[in-house]
Design a protein around this nucleic acid. Structure first.
Length: 636
DNA sequence: GCATTCTGCAA
DNA sequence: TATTGCAGAATGC
């Protein structure tokens, strides 16, 4: 049998996988391959064929669609071709870009003829990472509608911990199908497709395969989702959300690059100054950014105490340096240097380069299939970790600006949403009461633990209580708590004990979660998002403990993620009423940032407030704080 | 060039 | 030796 080409590394990997599953069969016999399967892939490259194709297309109620493009960035990409499949092992490819000198259908004619089908919400579409296609179509003034299935999202819901949800991996997992390697068709896959590298027939084969596989996957994955009670989560939350995320990515956010350039110059001057002081303090010049060279200075030259080790040497992280700062001037200088260098390299200097030349704005990617808990992630650039905690860092937020003088930012954030969800699940009397009475939750917890009236809670008491509240959400240990509060291990243990004595509902909830996880092997969120916890019964205490923390945290963090996704969908629907003059720009886990027309700001404010608060009914109130400002710093 | 390690930013 | 992420610089292969 002629199995497809598999490189050595992949081959070994597959064999190991099969061994792990107890299979002895030869690799070649196990895997269906592109080369041994009968497929009918049609190249639609003449106007006659296109009209034939069109006749078939308009008769379909559901099909898979896939775009070949010139770039991985949908806001730059141009369409190379479009593939369709509405029957297993059969697909059509319409090239829109071909080698120079070759004839090709006009993109205008093709797009204008298929537009009605693409924009018909009653004609169902399937895709792999279809948010991408949605954005590329939008650049071509086509508003894709009727999306009912995304194989990437389906794979994510079936196993959110999987690292790759690319089509090749999913096809192998659910269809035992080994695709033609992309590299065989168009090179490394990261390069742009140029017609010198690949002729149309090859691209056709690859494009048709993707649409075909996507179509077949939907068929296989749908029952799997039903089995896992995940269909509603996909249809009611994730698929509608994909449109919202595409809209947010499309909108982008304005950046005052001039301000950032000024900040960069200031930082450069400060850094040079600190650098000089560090060299003077050390006695010689070295690379401050190199942990290895720095530890040589700190621990060999200056003979400062060696506080903590890493895998490869001595740690020089902020904790270590803060402790060492008591004994020597250098660690403090390095801390300052590191802080400024971090801000400069990661934000101040990097962000201006991410501005899209066509729109003059920053367009992040919101990834829907990355986190194990159901949260979104943001990348290129990550706009979910813009500094806020230190004054100098916070200044960076001033550079994020609304598009014009008639617009402002509006930010809306959930107040203590994770603890409210904890109160909801645990039905803890004390916690529920505190929220019903709208008490400051950390002060309230401090008052209970220290046994003082809430007005007598000191800032230190509150700080410690806050650390425990965080700890509960993350799954706490006395070590972690003592590390965070500076309390002794003994004190930290006492603190935790008294917390659980007072909040017995929380204790019961934790035990219940762990028991459930042991029994079914997974935990579920508010909207039935699942995460498997295979190590929950591990013999290894460390792994077991980690699994228990993961179990508790996933329910809380994941439910909070579900909740804000529902709110985003509902707000998006409301915004389409058209009376608001507002755009959703960013989601930062418990916060939404909007750009709003000044004259509709009151209206938008109350709508956002309403939709976020009523996204789901908990047994405690949901509180939302809303602020407006002329830049992102002013809305904090 | 690519992967790993350390570091540090956010919720 | 607290949960989830992304990214830059140094470093090693």
């Amino acid at each position: 049998m002629n199995a497809c080409k598999v490189n050595t590394a992949e081959n070994t990997e597959l064999k190991n996988l099969f061994r792990a599953c107890g299979f002895q069969t030869l690799l070649a016999d196990m895997v269906a391959t592109a080369k041994t399967e009968e497929t009918q892939y049609h190249l639609v490259d003449t106007i006659e064929k296109f009209y034939e194709f069109l006749n078939l297309l308009v008769a379909q109620r559901i099909f898979a669609i896939d775009l070949e493009t010139t770039s991985t960035n949908p806001l730059i990409a141009r369409i190379v071709g479009i593939s369709f499949s509405w029957q297993a092992r059969e697909a059509y490819y319409i090239p829109l870009m071909v080698p120079e000198g070759t004839a090709c259908l006009s993109a205008d004619i093709v797009l204008s003829n298929i537009r009605a089908v693409l924009e018909d919400k009653n004609i169902k579409k399937i895709g792999q990472n279809i948010k991408y296609d949605l954005l590329v179509f939008r650049r071509n003034n086509i508003l894709l509608q009727g999306i009912v299935f995304d194989t990437m999202i389906a794979s994510y819901l079936l196993n959110p911990e999987k690292r790759n949800h690319n089509l090749d991996d999913i096809a192998f997992e659910y269809l035992s199908y080994k695709t033609i390697a992309t590299s065989e068709v168009i090179g490394s896959g990261k390069e742009q497709i140029t017609m010198d590298q690949a002729d149309v027939a090859k691209v056709c084969k690859y494009a048709c395969q993707d649409a075909d596989i996507s179509f077949r996957l939907a068929d296989v994955m749908e029952p799997r989702l039903k089995e896992g009670a995940l269909s509603e989560l996909l249809q009611d939350i994730e698929i509608p959300l994909l449109y919202v995320l595409a809209e947010m990515e499309w909108n982008g956010i304005g950046l005052n690059t001039h301000l950032l350039h000024e900040m960069s110059d200031t930082l450069t001057a400060k850094l040079q100054q600190i650098e000089k002081e560090i060299y003077a303090s050390a006695g010689y010049e070295f690379n401050i950014s190199s942990p290895r060279q720095l530890s040589e200075v700190l621990f060999e030259k200056l003979e400062l105490p060696r506080l903590r080790r890493t895998k490869t040497g001595l740690s020089t992280d902020a904790n270590v340096l803060t402790t060492l700062a008591w004994q020597h001037a250098l660690p403090k200088l390095v801390l300052e240097y590191r802080q400024l260098m971090k801000l400069k390299n990661t934000y101040v200097d990097a962000l201006p380069g991410m501005v899209n030349p066509n729109t003059g704005r920053i367009h992040t990617s919101f990834n829907q299939t990355v986190t194990a808990t159901g949260r979104l992630s943001s990348s290129e650039p990550n706009l979910q970790n813009i500094p806020i905690r230190t004054e100098i860092g916070r200044q960076i937020r001033r550079a994020f600006i609304p598009s014009g003088n008639d617009t402002m930012f509006l930010s809306a954030d959930y107040s203590q949403i994770e603890l409210r969800i904890l109160a909801h699940f645990s039905e803890d009397e004390a916690l529920m009461t505190a929220f019903h009475q709208d008490k400051d939750i950390h002060s309230s917890v401090a008052a209970a633990i220290y046994g003082v009236p809430i007005e007598n809670v000191t800032s230190e008491m509150r700080r410690n209580a806050k650390a425990v509240d965080f700890g509960i959400v993350y799954g706490l240990s006395e070590f972690g708590l003592s590390r965070d509060t500076g309390l002794s291990l003994e004190k930290a243990r006492e603190f935790i004990d008294s917390y659980f004595a007072l909040f017995q509902g929380v204790k019961r909830f934790r035990n219940k979660v762990v028991d459930q996880a042991r029994i079914c092997g997974y935990v579920k969120t508010l909207f039935h998002r699942k995460r498997f916890i295979p190590d929950i019964c591990s013999e290894d205490k460390k792994r077991r403990n980690l699994s228990e923390r993961i179990a508790v945290n996933t329910i809380i963090q994941g439910s909070a993620a579900d909740l804000i996704k529902v709110a985003m969908n509902n707000i998006h629907t409301r915004l389409q009423e058209g009376v608001y003059g507002a755009k959703m720009l960013l989601q930062i886990h418990d916060e939404l940032l909007f750009e709003v027309q000044k004259d509709t700001i009151t209206l938008t404010r109350s709508m956002v407030q309403e939709e976020m608060s009523r996204a789901v009914m908990l047994n405690v109130p949901i509180k939302v704080n809303i602020k407006t400002g002329v830049n992102w710093m002013e809305t904090e």
